[in-house]
Amino acid sequence: MGKTSKDKRDIYYRLAKEEGWRARSAFKLLQINEEHNIFNGVLRAVDLCAAPGSWSQVLTKKLRQNAENDDDVKIVAVDLQAMAALPGVKQIQGDITKISTANEIIKEFEGLKADLVVCDGAPDVTGLHDIDEYVQSQLLLAALNITTHVLKTGGVFVAKIFRGKDVTLVYSQLKLFFEFVTVSKPRSSRNSSIEAFVICQNYNPPPGYVPTMINPLLDHKYCDFNQLTGPNRFIVPFIACGDLSAYDSDTSYPLLLEGQTSYEYKEPVQGPIDPPYKDILEKTKSMQINNS
């Protein structure tokens, strides 16, 4: 496969490299904001499952427009893995299921709570949709759980969601904590991808709700108002986001885009992080494992 094949196949991959984003997902957050104005007045934001850091990059760039002084903007990025440093972003290497992590975030905000929590985390998919969707929903609920500790009332929560067979269970759970829940798909997210984003606005926990890490939220069961199959299912409104004139992630574009006169290949901004199989590759370098 040629060096330019990926540039040809995926317009946003190419644009991310050209605009200096660490991953193409940066465009997703930008397009979500275009539609939902989630950055309006936000000074304190939390980026959960932040690595490699493209959403933190977007937050830094966008939130600084909300403040006269760059120092008034506080962004905390949380991930299990270490990630390359970003100016203006406080990194916490920690587990989002731990109370200590929540406390660290609050401390960073000097006792104040966050205006916005975003989470673009996804598991390594196994290929079995039901397990992948379940693990993704658990990741989202873990993100929601820590959000209940750190988000101010009226705040916004944005997270990646897999719209699979049991997504209505997640919707109904989110609806308990937020007044408005919509699901959105940025133009930069492929049509063929199962991912979408939930935009949860106006955080308003049920009366008497006490955030806890001991008994994490487990998702709901099907019931009368949210059936496994039937006319009553909890389906939230869908809003596509991103300008209609924006590039489309499913379209094949020529390397010379409209209005351009030259094309230059660019290396990725951030190379891949250590994959789990790195060790094996090292150890088996001198051996041959054949599939014959």
């Binding site: 040629g2 330019t4 040809k8 196949r9 094949s252 574009y253 020529p254 390397l255 010379l256 094309y263």
Partner: peptide, 9 residues
């Protein structure tokens, strides 16, 4: 040389 046209799907 680099082919500037993508092969369509």
């Amino acid at each position: 040389s680099v082919d500037f046209d993508p092969e369509t799907r």
